[in-house]
Amino acid sequence: MYKARNGEEIFVIDGHTHFWDGSPANQKNVHGKQFIECFFNYHTGLSPKEELWPKEKFEKYDEKTLYDDLFVKGYVDIAILQPTYLNDFYVNGFNTTEQNSVLKKNHPDRFILNGSFDPRDGTKGIEYLHALKETYDIKGVKLYTAEWKGESKGYKLTDKESYRYLEWCEKLGIKNIHVHKGPTILPLNRDAFDVADVDDVATSFQNLNFIIEHCGLPRLDDFCWIATQETNVYGGLAVAIPFIHSRPAYFAHIISELLYWLGPDKLLFGSDYGIWTPKWIIDKFMAYELPKDVAAETGVKLDLEAKKKILGLNAARLYDIDIAAHKAKFGGEAKKEKALAGGWFR
């Protein structure tokens, strides 16, 4: 919960978090090593100096670190865990639903556990999707259309097999489809950032929501255009939002483009934890005002109402979260924790 200057309590859902193991012990090959190093470069490149982690901590952090960074220090009320399997790079996978499920088990009210599918897995993959639903009651999946798999160097949502999986998602009530369209994981000549396939499936699957993670950032221009036309397409702000610190002028342009084309009801906050921690991002985001010239040019507003929607209300709507009930519960818990910890918890 973030307390705004006017005293209002703002419910925060972090739409993009991970609990990964990128440690050398888990790396299968040079790709695994390069992958976590690339993530670390994002971390060091865009974090404020005082928020930097040592590399070893970044490679593998424990449950308590994550819990404290998100819920104790970071204002987050509920976090959505997005898996990234990468079984070709890591012995036990990088950040699988199974790994993440430990957090969900220990703190059921704090986490939304998402699954994943890969349409190239055929019937076996459909069975796995069923198993994820039965075991964890997942309401969303995270997809990497650019992921390397054997001979295949990526897929499109419009592939026949993808349709089959999306039909199953619809039937099973897995209604939130998070699609990574952002900084690259192994794209080849297929343009992995191409968002055109989203346009097509968003029209075909009106009961599903498509949350485009990183707003298709290498192709923000194309994404804005598509999202404008489809009512069930959303933008996830992970990777875009840390620019608020290192390049505030770019952030102004990006957020105003998104507000102009998509509007404040279609954007979801995400820290991309552990690449970045939510506290400093939220502090800066709440203090942020659009430069006058940018606001005048686009006619958009990033006021408290818009910020509340982006930080939590939009994700709550997609995941059917009863904010009042959670507020009451977390309020009680916080008091109890405070008493137990002798006032250490705020």
Partner: peptide, 9 residues
């Protein structure tokens, strides 16, 4: 290039 993965194309 800035990353190991930058689009080969």
């Amino acid at each position: 290039l800035p990353t190991y993965w930058c689009s080969p194309n």
